[in-house]
């Protein structure tokens, strides 16, 4: 066989080995990539999910409280003063109309938070908006504590 033929044969063998190795590597790379991505995605998604869930639970509980029958007649004045604050409180629910609206908007915003990662929506931006809605709702309810804090720092009662 000529030198040219030897080189062509050698190149062919090298390419065959590279292709075979590449296919094995790609298969393992897919697994490794999926795993790495899932680990990171689970962590990021979980942290977002816990915070949106916290706000949702907050809104759900307060809406449920507002639907409760008002306290005994003798407590009505105190109840209005305590829950409503600045004169717009509803004596029948103990939660002002403004607070009602804020709670509904908060709950809606929490439900709208992207459950899937997509290019069209920035979860961090949506989270910032949700935090703003939460602050507004909490202010309307005259609730300042506890604010949501990540798990490691914990809430302060």
């Amino acid at each position: 066989m000529s030198d040219t033929g030897d080189i062509e044969l050698l190149l062919e063998v090298e390419t065959m080995f590279e292709t075979s190795g590449w296919e094995d590597g790609y298969r393992d790379g897919v697994k490794a990539g999926m795993l790495e991505g899932r680990v990171f995605g689970c962590e990021r998604g979980f942290l977002f999910g816990v915070e949106t869930g916290f706000y949702s639970g907050f809104a759900e509980l307060w809406q449920a409280v507002a639907m409760q029958a008002p306290p005994e007649a003798g407590d009505a004045t105190d109840a209005t003063d305590a829950a409503g604050g600045a004169g717009d409180a509803s004596a029948s629910t103990g939660v002002s109309a403004r607070a009602h609206k804020q709670l509904a908007q908060l709950r809606e915003a929490a439900a709208r938070f992207p459950r899937e990662n997509g290019a069209s929506v920035d979860p961090q931006l949506e989270m910032d908006r949700l935090r703003g809605r939460y602050r507004t709702a909490a202010a309307a309810l005259r609730v300042t504590e506890p604010a949501f804090r990540p798990a490691k720092t914990g809430l302060t009662f």
């Binding site: 899932r38 680990v39 995605g41 977002f48 999910g49 869930g53 639970g57 459950r115 990662n117």
Partner: peptide
């Protein structure tokens, strides 16, 4: 993988956050 994990994480985290 990230997209798959993100969806799982949000789903699980949201329910636990609600309870919190």
């Amino acid at each position: 993988g990230f997209d798959q994990g993100y969806a799982q994480g949000v789903h699980i985290g949201h329910e636990l956050g609600r309870l919190q």
